[in-house]
């Protein structure tokens, strides 16, 4: 145990995948795998974090991530408090900093933050007085999602090394894409991103990814196809003309899947738009690991909480 690179996580936060080495990611996946069994038991509870308090501070609505962290905390016997805060500090009359300082005064053992503004968990980590876990900040990062994706992929593929990965959809607005690109790069993946040019960041030169606007090209020979959710509000912003046109070019259906490796897997962070970015046939078919991702989400968040709250004094 002494030689585990992760053991000394004292004083650390989980703000982005960049905080983690490849070994640490593997360590987290192994630990999360250890927790999968707990969720299959009749008594789905471990006493590990008894007496610890985890605060979920959510500045934007999120059912799945919040629930996932909540269940994870509770299965480890932590007390979990959910706080839905107004996203606009101006409206609320209290600044983000003051909100965090107030909660910090109640001495939680971990603070999970979801916020529409990028960088807020990093900022909070400077004065929270406890480990801060980024539960998604704007289009910046969503590290636990990337970790559970790595876990899901490892379960099917045994190794994360040298995979051909296609990430398809609205990369511009996607924290999931950014965190996953960061994670895959730790394992020397060949990453292709695909979507309308209007939904790609303008300057991707330093991302180390291939960009294409042809889904067939993106999926060709892929081991992993990561679909992103398309939001209809992007139409109003003039980023693409219609869902019909979007799905005609970027929907992952059985025909596109023929280009992938026979044992390819399809992920999606949810919630899925059936028939728009992914056909039901694919979403429910043999390639899909979408529900495994949800299951793994709880186990991975248990691993993260165990790691960050369980630090030696």
């Amino acid at each position: 145990m002494v030689d585990s690179p992760l053991v000394n996580f004292k004083g650390r936060h989980l703000l982005g995948i960049d905080d983690l080495s490849a070994d640490e990611i593997i360590g987290l996946v192994n630990t999360a795998n250890r927790f999968v069994e707990v969720s299959e038991r009749e008594i789905k509870k471990l006493p590990t974090l008894r007496g610890k308090t985890v605060v979920n501070l959510f500045f934007e609505p999120s059912t799945r991530t919040r629930t996932s962290f909540e269940i994870a905390g509770k299965r480890l016997s932590a007390d979990v408090i959910n706080i839905s805060a107004q996203s606009s500090s101006v409206v609320k009359g209290e600044t983000f900093k003051d909100t965090v300082l107030n909660l910090a005064s109640m001495r939680p053992d971990a603070l999970v933050i979801r916020h529409p503004s990028p960088g807020t968990p990093l900022y909070a980590s400077k004065f929270a007085g406890c480990p801060v876990i980024n539960g998604g900040d704007g289009a910046h990062a969503h590290p636990t999602q990337a970790l559970l994706d790595m876990m899901t992929i490892m379960e099917r593929r045994k190794s994360l090394k040298n995979l051909n990965v296609a990430i398809i959809g609205d990369v511009l607005h996607s924290r999931v894409a950014r965190s996953n690109i960061s994670a895959f790069k730790r394992f020397d993946a060949n990453i292709t991103v695909c979507g309308p040019k209007t939904l790609m960041p303008a300057h991707m030169d330093n991302f180390g990814v291939r960009v294409t606007h042809d889904i067939y090209e993106a999926v060709e020979g892929a081991d992993v196809i990561m679909m992103l959710r398309i939001q209809t509000e992007r139409m109003a912003q003039g980023l693409f003309p219609s869902l019909r046109e979007y799905s005609s070019r970027f929907c992952l259906d059985s025909k596109v899947m023929k280009k992938a490796k026979p044992d390819a897997i399809v992920t999606h962070p949810g919630p899925i738009n059936r028939g728009i970015e992914i056909s039901s046939e694919v979403a429910d078919g043999k390639y899909s690991v979408i529900l495994d991702q949800v299951t793994h989400g709880v186990a991975m968040r248990m691993a993260v909480l165990y790691l960050l709250c369980g630090g030696a004094d």
């Binding site: 303008a202 300057h203 991302f207």
Partner: peptide, 15 residues
């Protein structure tokens, strides 16, 4: 600024 940093950090850019 819309550039390499905004792309990486997911902050909206001003071109």
């Amino acid at each position: 600024n819309e550039g390499e940093v905004s792309a990486r950090l997911g902050i909206k850019g001003i071109p």
